[in-house]
Simulated scan of single mutants.
Amino acid sequence: MFTSFRTEHTEGFIEYRVEDLTGLRTRICPERLKRGIGGVYIPTYKDEDCPFCPGLIEEVTPVFPDGKRIHIGESITFPNLYPFAAYHVVTSITHEHSVPTFTHKQIADALSGQVTALKKQSEYVSINWNYLPSAGASLPHPHLQGLCDHQPDTLPSRYLLAGEQYHKTHGRGYFEDVRKDAERSGRDLPGTILFWYAHPVPIGEREIRCLLPLTTVAEFSDVLEDFAADLISLLGFYRDLGTSAFNMAIFFGQNKDRNTFSAFCSLISRINPNPLSTSDTAFMERLHLEPVILTLPEELASTWREYAQNMPNVPTIIN
């Protein structure tokens, strides 16, 4: 699944990894954790004049062509006023402006709002979440963003194109082999309902992926409740590791991709916003397009196993 080599230095090592299918590269430097670049989450965001808070959201946000917004539980879904995709919708997740933790219902309802708005789109869809400004959220009020474009974005397009060739060469889907390799290597995360694993060539810090048993966004409703339950557990895991901020993206394919592509979620932790934090994105990530990662995926999976043993109400694993 990937190729790696290490360079030793006086303080430890740098491990270079390349994902064989896509050519995506990363470098892992665990000693850099000792710099203490993160810090405790300090919530300082006020709700004054927030367009996603009750009282304003119904006044200032756009509506769909039928003149309505989508209301499911606390969540409200509407078109993005400043889109950067051919079809771009936003879901305000909660009534509350600053939310340190989420309930299963809040996450499930917000995801349902996204699926309702996106399921009739026939092209390439993703559901995305920037949580807190240090993760790129333009507003601290928690919200999801759904995108649909004529062409898949760079990351899913690599898997879509290379996955077709992999299927022709091996007679099976690439993601089947990803799952087998994760289980064999111990990078899988037991105690989850869906299949999650520590991705071996991370594109962000502590990257965890979910291989969904589906292809299109319309099918996501079938596992949405399970996905929300798993996500709650994983976000608690991130908080216990010391970070609250994160990015999430769920990438979907089309019906024609069914034999060669599995919808998947990528989840990464980010540095918490406070005056003492240093960004975890710099020239290597933005200009070289090659992330510098602090945590070995194998260690992340091992830490999850210890965490999951003490987790209450661990769901039954569905194989």
Rank of each mutant, 00 (worst) to 15 (best):
P83R: 00
T7Q: 14
S157K: 09
V178Q: 07
L155W: 07
I203T: 05
A301R: 01
I107E: 01
K256W: 04
L287P: 01
E164W: 03
D153K: 15
F237K: 08
F227D: 04
R258V: 13
V223L: 12
I293K: 08
L155D: 11
A86Y: 10
Q165Y: 14
F246C: 00
T91F: 02
P156Q: 11
A228F: 08
S126I: 10
S266P: 01
L24A: 14
P297Q: 05
W196S: 07
C53L: 06
H95D: 08
M248Q: 15
G191R: 10
T7F: 02
V217D: 01
H9P: 00
D20R: 13
R35F: 08
L267N: 10
E290K: 11
I28S: 08
N80Q: 11
L147Y: 14
M311Q: 14
S126G: 14
S92I: 07
L300M: 04
Y82T: 09
S277W: 06
T26H: 05
G73A: 05
K105N: 05
I127Q: 02
T101L: 09
K68G: 04
Q165T: 15
G136H: 12
V60T: 15
I232Q: 09
P291N: 09
I208G: 03
S185I: 02
L144V: 03
T316L: 12
H71V: 06
P79S: 08
T10W: 02
P142T: 03
N272V: 00
I28T: 11
P275N: 11
I193M: 07
S98M: 09
F237E: 11
T3I: 13
I293F: 12
L160W: 00
S92P: 00
T260D: 11
N272P: 12
T154I: 15
G236C: 13
Y166M: 07
R187K: 09
Y174S: 05
S126R: 03
R69C: 00
A263C: 07
R27T: 04
T94G: 06
I28M: 09
I232P: 05
S266C: 09
G136N: 09
P140D: 04
R17F: 10
F227H: 14
S266I: 06
F283Q: 12
E225W: 03
T94C: 12
C265T: 15
V314H: 01
Y131G: 02
Y124E: 08
L189Q: 06
A85H: 04
H141A: 00
I42H: 15
P273S: 11
H97T: 11
G39V: 09
R25K: 15
V201Q: 08
S75I: 05
L147G: 00
F195E: 00
D257W: 10
G113L: 03
